[in-house]
Amino acid sequence: MIKDYEQGYFSEQNSAEVVAARNAGAKDERLRECVNILVKHVHAAIKEMELTQEEWFKTILFLTETGHMCNDWRQEFILLSDVMGVSMLVDAINNRKPSGASESTVLGPFHVAEVPELPMGANICLDGKGEPMMVRGRILDTSGNPIEGVKIDVWQANDEGFYDVQQKGIQPDYNLRGVFRTAADGSYCFRGVKPKYYPIPDDGPVGKLLGALGRHPYRPAHFHYILQADGFETLITHIFDPDDPYINSDAVFGVKESLMAKFQLIEKPDQIATSGFDGPYHLVEHDFVLVRE
């Protein structure tokens, strides 16, 4: 008697079907389904490419090298997922929003938990370096009502493109990071510095792959938000500088048109004095809309 997993002999024509049949005894139905879909598409791609044995061995060596680059502080496979657009695709599938709601994007590798909470309007730049920036706006629900008490976790790179955790002993701890709470009218405000574009780690196999593909490793200037409020879905997102030279070619595909906000240079003396700055500064105004759970 032929069992379910004994569905014929392996051939070029039926390769995916034979492999899928062998998985019929899987106890986890979701695992079986996902593996079979992956096998189907991988086999189809290999057939379309007519991959040589030498090319497949180079692929194995690339994946091996990628694994060797992973350690406690670096995950090269996540980087590979990012530059292939897979991270953003998974994010998009899992964060489908109703019309009018703010869009999400990738978390990134430099978030730090338990950052000190600061009073509204505080300066998150602790070392005084960079071009001053003020960020303000409101957080609303999809009906346009303000949301009070939203926890706003923000962080950014400095004017050289580095996060504090990348420059221990150079930048102060918690530099350019802060947690704030919205007021009754949903408003928020904090100070920072104008961020700069920076490269993702490109000294490993993923960086070599980007170079071979004629791609650069840069992310356009941005800063990060995590917005949390009782009764609402948590939003992980960025704000981007639309004038950045890499705005249309983000190495990890994180840019969305709705997440771009103008970095307006304020130079008028009366506006500078009113805002409490000593000289010109950049003003970023952006509202967010959260979705109820």
Rank of each mutant, 00 (worst) to 15 (best):
R215E: 12
A261S: 15
L265T: 12
H222S: 12
P242L: 03
Q271E: 07
L259R: 08
Q228F: 05
S249Y: 07
I239N: 12
Q228A: 14
K268V: 15
A251N: 03
I236G: 10
P205M: 15
Q264H: 09
P205N: 14
D230E: 08
V206Y: 01
Q228V: 13
A229R: 01
P269F: 06
F263Y: 10
T234R: 05
G207M: 01
L210C: 07
A221E: 02
Y218C: 01
V255K: 14
H224N: 15
D203P: 07
Y246T: 02
F263V: 02
L259N: 14
H222Y: 02
D244M: 09
P201V: 12
M260F: 02
Y225H: 14
H238Y: 08
Y225A: 05
L265H: 13
P220M: 05
I200T: 11
G231M: 00
F232N: 00
F232C: 00
A261Q: 09
A251T: 11
D241E: 06
Q228D: 15
D244K: 05
T237N: 10
T234D: 09
D202V: 10
H238E: 15
F263H: 08
A212P: 11
E267P: 02
M260S: 07
P201W: 13
K256R: 15
A212L: 14
P201G: 06
P220C: 05
H222G: 05
L210R: 05
A229N: 00
H222E: 13
P242W: 05
L210T: 03
